[in-house]
Structure formats: structure tokens, C-alpha cells
């Protein structure tokens, strides 16, 4: 079976810094791939590079990213726009700054609908999507300014925006990091539901391993711009091969375990 997305030897340079140093991975249709790694390991850079969302002047991207059999990295801007939002959609880390502060929420969602599903009444669909993502009063939320919503509500709006183009792959870049714990769980639940309902593949980026249980199908562990280990989720966490992966797992707090203090990564994975 051909994978939905195949990334081959992806490199990202920021001037002299090599943020991503040749990574390869695949995502099957409907599969959830978790990308984990410490801060600065190049997770966001890899994800953004796929649809060339990195600042054009600063970043140099090499390699191949095959969606079906088209290489996203050499796609004409016109066709790339059809992929962005239409086949690959994003949910970002900071919901507050990801929404345009001077445009109403509904309009921002409708914009995505209009772009990818011409003919569909955009505003109505936007309200429906906002409702689907669990916003209590979608009509009102659509008319609201972003700053009038709470962080969790903002993130729901962004998810609605991402779903508007009915993508095959949703890239969620630490979607819950900026939220508090109960809201985190709700958002994660929402992603799980939507993913099941739409049979949508998800690239889930996090450094919070505990979130991945009962969600991730496969996992890839990144460090210093390289993937050090990847495989089926349960296999990897029950028998991690790379010392770094073991280190990451050791840092996850466990119920009932008694520790003087949490180990730091440098101690467990030299």
C-alpha cells in the first residue's frame, strides 16, 4: 500500500544552523504518527517544511516530501495552496497568536471553507464546524473576536479551521502545550474523535509522552534534527532501543512511583 505521505531525507537549514538533518518517515492513510523529542530538536521545523511554511528567506529546505506521488517541496505555489489546508492542515501551539486578532472567528473559519470547498455556503459551514468542535454557542463564537474566547475555545476554533478543508492529514504541533491540564484532555479527546470520524491521518507533535497512550499508532523520536528511533508505538515504549528514547520515557511521571526527583535527560541519555 502506498503511504499517504512519504518524507525522504528532509533537511532544513537556518543560515548556519542545521535544524533538521535528513529525516525520513512515512504516514499511512488514517494513521496517527507521534513525533516526539526535546525542545529545539527540529520537530516544528520538519512539520512546517512539508508545506514550505517556514520563512522563505531564512530557511533552506532540501529532500523530498511525497504526498501520493507529488513532491510538495518542488510544487508550484498554486498547487501548493491546494495542498495547504485542503490536504494537509495544521493546528499550532499558541492558539492566541495563531488567530488573527482583528478578524472575527467565524470569518477566519469561513475563509478556509471558501478556499477549499467552493459552492458550500461558507459562513453556515463555519458555524457548523465550530459546533462540531464543541464550542457551546457556535453562532456567538462565530461573531466573537478571538480575544473574547478562552484559550481552549480558541484552540477549538483553530481545529475547526483546520477541518474546514477536509484534509487527509492533520499536523498538530503541540496543540495542547499552551493550555491547562483539563482543557488539554478535552482538546486531545476532540482530536481523537475527529480523527476517527474522518479517518484522517494525524502527525502529532509533542514532548509529552503521556498524551500518546491510546492515540498514537506509531512513534518517531527526534533528537538534534535526526530521527533516532521509530516504530509501532507500543513496541517502542515497551522496548526502547535507543538510550535517548529510554531517557525520554524515564522522564514521564508515573502514578505511584516514588522518586526523589525527576531525572534530567542528560543524566539518563548521555
Amino acid at each position: 500500500m502506498t503511504p499517504l505521505l512519504r518524507v525522504e531525507d528532509l533537511h532544513v537549514h537556518f543560515r548556519s544552523v542545521e535544524a533538521v538533518a535528513g529525516i525520513s518517515f512515512e504516514i499511512q492513510k488514517g494513521e496517527v504518527l507521534a513525533l516526539v523529542g526535546e525542545s529545539g530538536s527540529g520537530k516544528s521545523a520538519s512539520a512546517l517544511a512539508l508545506t514550505r511554511l517556514l520563512p522563505e528567506r531564512a530557511a533552506e529546505i532540501r529532500g523530498r516530501a511525497l504526498l501520493g506521488d507529488t513532491d510538495l517541496l518542488s510544487l508550484a505555489p498554486r498547487d501548493l495552496r491546494r495542498v495547504r489546508g485542503g490536504r494537509i492542515a495544521y493546528v499550532f501551539q499558541e492558539p492566541m497568536s495563531a488567530l488573527h486578532p482583528l478578524l472575527r472567528v467565524g470569518r477566519q473559519v469561513a475563509e478556509a471553507v471558501r478556499q477549499h470547498r467552493p459552492g458550500v455556503p461558507a459562513m453556515k459551514e463555519a458555524v457548523r464546524l465550530l459546533g462540531e468542535t464543541g464550542l457551546p454557542d457556535p453562532e456567538r463564537a462565530a461573531r466573537a473576536w478571538p480575544h473574547e474566547l478562552s484559550g481552549g475555545m480558541q484552540q477549538r476554533a483553530i481545529i475547526a479551521m483546520a477541518l474546514a478543508g477536509e484534509p487527509d492529514l492533520l499536523i498538530a504541533d503541540e496543540p495542547t502545550t499552551a493550555l491547562d491540564v483539563t482543557v488539554q484532555a478535552q482538546i486531545l479527546e476532540l482530536l481523537k474523535t475527529e480523527r476517527r470520524k474522518r479517518a484522517m491521518a494525524v502527525l502529532f507533535i509533542t514532548h509529552h509522552m503521556a498524551l500518546l497512550t491510546s492515540f498514537a499508532d506509531r512513534i518517531a523520536v527526534m533528537r538534534h534534527g535526526k530521527i533516532v528511533e521509530q516504530g509501532p508505538f507500543l513496541e517502542v515504549i515497551s522496548a526502547p532501543k535507543h538510550p535517548y528514547t529510554r531517557g525520554l520515557l524515564a522522564c514521564v511521571p508515573r502514578l505511584g512511583a516514588r522518586l526523589k526527583r525527576f531525572p534530567t535527560l542528560s543524566e539518563v541519555a548521555p
Binding site: L53, G85, A98, H100, L103, A112
Partner: peptide
Amino acid sequence: DYVRTARAKGLPESRVLSLHVLRS
């Protein structure tokens, strides 16, 4: 960030500029 969001939605650059950038 919100300009990146607009681009991630697949909006053409002209619209990103004339609506999102200009508005703010």
C-alpha cells in the same frame, strides 16, 4: 503566527497581504 495560519489555510499570497497583513 497568524500570517502563517492564513498561509496554512491555503490562501493565496495576494489575499494574505491584502486582508490579513493590511488589516493588522
